[in-house]
Simulated scan of single mutants.
Amino acid sequence: MPGRLSVPRLRGGTPAEAGLDVAQLDLLVREVRRLPESHPEGEDPWCAGAVVLAGRGSVVAVEEAAGWAVRYTACDEEAGRGVELPRERRVPMRTGTLFDLASLTKLFTAVAAVQQVERGALDLDRPVAAYVPGFGAAGKAAVTVRQLLTHTSGLRPELPLYEREGRAAQLAMVWEDAPLTAPGTAYCYSDLNLIALQAVLEGVSERPLDELVREGITGPLGMAATGFGPVGAVGVAGAGVVAATEDQRRPWAKLDRGMLCGEVHDENAYALGGVAGHAGLFSTAGDLAVLCRALLGGGTYGAARILTQESADALLDPPGLGFGIDQPWFMGELAGHGAAGHTGFTGTSLILDRTTDTFLILLANTIHPRRRPANNAPRATAATRLARAVRPQTAGLA
């Protein structure tokens, strides 16, 4: 790519150095620390543990860990609660803990797609079937690559790919499925969009997705902790800790795999070999902050450049390519002036806001020991704290 002046790399600093209000950030940290605490009613807490990282510009003003990376040995089906490990056998959460990112993987796939556009190998407004002919079956001939990235293709949210053996048979299930709505007419969030996009990218580049991510994103940015699983104790920031996810068993899950820690949780990503466009990456809060900083810096971080300014803007301008824009259900008061981000089923989330030059990563193992209906209130509350740290308001949260 053409040269560009380097931009500052991330560094630790105080709220004042970041231009953020210390009182709001203290509340943010205090509230995150409470998330792993048990409910008085005896229910499992919102998460077993969490890591929060927040900053502005090149300054990381908050980086805290709370609770446990591994807290439970199983889920008691009858009680509907986790079976806790003895305290001495639990694994404490660390700021360098690796998390199964789940759908945050989609952001990396989106970046890889825009990189192929820059190289002239991909046109967002061409039909997907021009790159993967089999995709055009069952009324999908007009679906474009852009519609995959904006979730306007009409594809259903998911299919049980894990019921078929072999990648060809699994992808054929997607190719054979008819859209629920006419392409371009309605929004429907779908894992299948990014699974199809993976096939497009691997076709035009003649490289597997994990190589595209490593060589085009994580390698240049120095995100050494980020990669597709399975992962083990890899010595991230001296911690060597991986956050556990689910005691994956029927009837609440789709496969019987037991307690997962270091293997991708998503059943379809697992069936696809652990490398999928919609899920499969593992990372740390610190690495994700680097990605945020690179996007806020117009595709540049330090001396590395992974995107042009135009491409970075394309990802983050409404309606977003892969990124959700202004979603108050998890962005709280950061939403409303172009904030971009995403959430992951395992309890992960990332938000970046070009208007205030801020970023927030909240990683939690909310499905440890088992999945539950989503509760996004803690994510929205954390984002609101950061928003108010930039522009303090007299009205506060209780």
Rank of each mutant, 00 (worst) to 15 (best):
M1G: 10
R4T: 09
L5Q: 13
R11I: 05
P15S: 03
E17L: 06
D21L: 03
L25R: 00
L28S: 04
E31Q: 15
V32R: 06
R34L: 15
P36Q: 11
E41Q: 15
G42C: 15
A48E: 07
G49I: 14
A50S: 11
A50C: 10
V52L: 07
L53Q: 08
S58K: 13
A61L: 02
G67L: 08
G67Q: 03
Y72S: 06
A74E: 08
C75A: 12
C75I: 15
E77I: 15
A79H: 09
G80V: 14
R81E: 11
P86W: 10
R87M: 13
E88K: 13
P92R: 05
M93H: 05
M93Q: 04
R94E: 13
T105Q: 02
K106L: 06
L107S: 06
L107K: 01
F108G: 01
T109W: 03
A110E: 00
A112L: 05
A113D: 00
Q115M: 06
Q116G: 05
E118W: 00
G120A: 11
D125V: 10
V132P: 05
A137H: 10
A142H: 09
T144Q: 07
H151R: 06
S153Q: 05
G154R: 04
R156H: 13
E165P: 02
E165R: 15
G166E: 08
A168H: 10
A172F: 09
W175E: 01
W175K: 00
E176D: 15
A178D: 00
A182G: 03
A182M: 03
C188D: 14
Y189R: 03
S190A: 07
A196F: 01
L197H: 01
L197S: 00
A199S: 12
S205C: 06
D210N: 09
D210L: 11
V213L: 07
R214I: 11
G222Y: 02
A225S: 14
V234R: 14
V236P: 06
G238V: 11
G238H: 06
P251Y: 12
W252K: 15
A253S: 12
K254T: 14
K254L: 15
K254E: 13
L255E: 14
D256R: 15
D256F: 10
G258D: 06
C261H: 02
V264C: 06
D266Q: 12
Y270P: 07
A279R: 06
S283Q: 12
L288K: 10
C292A: 14
G298P: 04
T300G: 13
Q309Y: 10
A314D: 04
A314I: 01
P318G: 02
G324T: 12
D326W: 02
D326N: 05
Q327W: 08
Q327S: 10
L334V: 05
A335F: 01
G338A: 01
A340D: 02
A340R: 00
T346E: 04
S349C: 05
L350I: 07
T355V: 13
D357G: 09
D357L: 09
F359A: 07
L362Y: 03
L363P: 04
H368M: 07
H368T: 08
H368C: 10
R371V: 14
P373L: 11
P373F: 14
A380M: 02
T381E: 13
A383H: 01
R385T: 05
V390A: 02
R391C: 11
Q393W: 08
Q393P: 04
A395I: 08
A395M: 05
G396Q: 10
L397G: 01
A398D: 13
